[in-house]
Design a protein around this nucleic acid. Structure first.
Lengths: 144, 144
DNA sequence: TATTAAATCTGTAATGATTACAAATATGAA
DNA sequence: TTCATATTTGTAATCATTACAGATTTAATA
């Protein structure tokens, strides 16, 4: 495991976020689970380690981290927000069958745009994603 | 107005969808309101003309139209699905301040990809969007 | 160390979009 | 007309998210 609490702590401090225990645990979780987890998934695991953890805290923390640019909100499914640590710009693939979200190795065509505006609008985030049937589900289909 | 009921009717028939009155009205509404409306917006206007219209019918119809590829679901905001008639591939810009969604004249870089798969996943839809502060809100900010 | 204000966390209740479902209605074929 | 099927409708349930107020923790200051 690359991540540890010290690393996560300095990451928060660099962004000007007070590193409380709850925040450390949530960010650590995101570093260790790169499957674009839901609030539910995060809460369900953390409540085991920290029985006093509140789901509202998970929501509040994720919102804060998102506002500070530490993580990204992914709104692909339409039913719930997924979360992703904010590493280099990448795209996503949502499987319509199993619901899994994959990272996709396509360099974002807009990532190195010199101008940070489009049609006069100021760009702060760039998102791209594909929807379809994933590799695994295709194999299952063919085996039926 | 370019659209009329006859046009909308044949559009449905071509896609193998029985053109009921409710469906005609909903699709006509989408043709005439290109601002990526919510279910609420669609329902609120149609209930005036068709007092028996049920919100469930709006949901059912939009799901059907979406499955048949007549319209697109846009899941940018994370709070509710927006709808768009499915013309040529384009991208969107969501203003974080006023919540308005703009069409963006960027030709999708993946639109004319020869292969319909990526990393082994079968691509059915391609979505791209930007988030930030829109033109109008920028002007308002500067005038304060 | 004690005091105190501010920040953070917690739990519950409320909200709002969406879905489930069953009854009512409309449609189309026999 | 009769009957089966598709569609529509209205209500109730579900589920993610937010509002909010009280409890707890933190950090600064005396």
């Amino acid at each position: 495991m690359i991540t540890n609490m010290k690393h996560v702590k300095s990451e928060l401090e660099q962004k000007g976020i007070k590193p409380t225990y709850q925040r450390l645990c949530i960010l650590e979780y995101l570093h260790e689970h790169l499957v674009h987890p839901t609030v539910e998934m995060i809460y369900d695991e953390l409540i085991e380690r920290i029985p006093t953890m509140s789901k509202t805290t998970v929501y509040n923390t994720l919102k804060l981290l998102s506002e500070k640019g530490v993580i990204n909100e992914i709104t692909i499914t339409g039913t719930e927000v997924r979360y992703d640590i904010n590493c280099q710009s990448h795209h996503h693939f949502l499987c319509k069958k199993c619901g899994k979200i994959y990272d996709v190795d396509v360099t974002c065509p807009f990532a190195n745009m010199d101008h940070k505006e489009i049609s006069g609008h100021e760009i702060q985030e760039i998102h791209g994603y594909f929807k379809g049937i994933c590799k695994e589900c295709l194999i299952k289909q063919n085996n039926e």
